[in-house]
Design a protein around this nucleic acid. Structure first.
Lengths: 254, 254
DNA sequence: GCTCATTTAAAACGACTGTTTGAAATTATC
DNA sequence: GATAATTTCAAACAGTCGTTTTAAATGAGC
């Protein structure tokens, strides 16, 4: 015998223990469908898609296991239902707000120009509204959304892509008009970076937060957080495109 | 009987089909340990941690199932081994490069000032080097790393946190010195945003890429990609902190 | 009260999971 | 070449998984 590695004696389940799931928590919606959605939202946020079993969800929701498949068909469809419930209206609000800004700018360009800050606020305000309105569920969903961006499952990525297609198209066009001196392709990339910083921040589960000396005792609210993010992103969007001199200096001096 | 939802007739496995795994692919390392690491790196990147089974990994690596547990102890320890193999030297290179810049700046502040661009390049150059050196594995790992940032599994987050602690502390201090007019806490947040845009970009699996009209036929290399990212981040880091006027204007005009 | 569609309940299905075991094969050491 | 340490192998273990099935309970319309 031997040991290339000291083996752990007992088999410890890595997944959330279903026997430790409290049958009744704060899931208080009346109908079964909503109870399942609420529990799924919280548990998917906490453990991720693959690591969250239907038994864990239905136990937390205090409903029968078969109810999940009965009402939603499959686990994937339940996952999508969790998203559409909140993402659909949020992205609709974003497009509506952007349209309002565009109309105001069109009517009176001198007074209400469509600045980068305006466009960014059209993306953030609906997200903020959701985080504030449904006190618990809204924040859970934002964290879940931030994580879903990086999930490798193809069905998640295809689903999110279809959900975001219209909104992102509108905002890319708006940024393009607000930044006429920047090439269209560069604008696409910067919108890409904006989404990255945004989703990373909304997910709120990054490595930085677990390291000491990073705002140790202060509990930031989402509003203050996005007020920090906004100037950062606006400045990045307006930055001069990298000159040839910078490009060559960058990677050859080390 | 009835149907609240049209049921899918057969049970289709959502996970990667092990029967479809090719026993021999391009995993050509000689020793079993490296073969497992190479296969695990690629499959974890492709399917995520939970959705990747040890049987899938060992089949792709063309080794026996028990070899994974024999050499690494557990699936979690295998996952961590995949990371330490590349992340450890990469972060060491980053700190070394930053130290070199700091020494040069200290010796001759007028000629070699420690600018934001310098510090950013100390983060990017080692990542670029890895992406170029090991042609396939390096890129795979960067995508895996970007996804791991958002993974909800506690052991992943704690592991990454410990791996990044020293490096991030050094870079936060460096940014603080390079941006003396910006409050320390604001610097921490902006480093946070930088990491978000960076990991999102390195992951390369975001929603934007799947939407039409986004660089449809051009295959960007990582070098050009980071040349686009750098000016964006540097401008954001140097942005004036949000004034009180901006703050109040932001969220109350909708 | 009866009929009918809708919803809930308990139990089982087949498949897949990480891990362990004990013997065979291989490699190194003397 | 014999002995010992290391590595590989096939097989099994004890669970959990998503899903389906069957029957019981519930509700509405008349």
């Amino acid at each position: 015998m031997n040991t290339a590695v000291t083996q752990k004696s007992p088999q410890i389940s890595r997944l959330a223990d279903i026997s430790a799931a409290k049958p009744i928590e704060k899931i208080e919606a009346v109908d079964t469908k909503s109870r399942i959605l609420d529990a799924a939202e919280e548990l998917f946020m906490e453990h991720g898609f693959e690591a969250t079993s239907l038994r864990l969800i239905t136990t937390a929701a205090n409903v029968n296991l078969a109810a999940a498949n009965y009402h939603f068909g499959s686990k994937e469809e339940l996952f999508q239902a969790v998203f559409t419930r909140r993402l659909d209206p949020m992205n609709r609000d974003r497009v509506t707000l952007l349209s309002a800004y565009e109309a105001a700018a069109s009517a009176n360009p001198k007074i209400n120009p469509l600045t980068c800050e305006k466009i960014i606020s059209a993306m953030f305000i609906p997200a903020l509204k959701m985080a504030r309105d449904q006190e618990q569920g809204g924040k859970n969903f934002l964290r879940l959304l931030g994580r879903a961006y990086a999930d490798p499952a193809p069905f998640i990525r295809e689903f999110l892509s279809s959900q975001y297609a219209e909104m992102l198209g509108r905002f890319r066009a708006a940024f393009g008009r607000a930044l006429p001196h920047i090439p269209r392709e560069e604008v696409s990339w910067r919108l890409h970076f904006v989404m990255g910083a945004l989703s990373f921040t909304l997910a709120g589960t990054d490595v930085l937060k677990m390291i000491a000396q990073f705002h140790p005792n202060e509990v930031e609210n989402d509003e203050l957080l996005l007020k920090r993010l906004a100037p950062f992103l606006a400045a990045g969007l307006r930055a001069p495109v990298g000159s040839a001199g910078d490009d060559h200096q960058w990677f050859n001096e080390a």
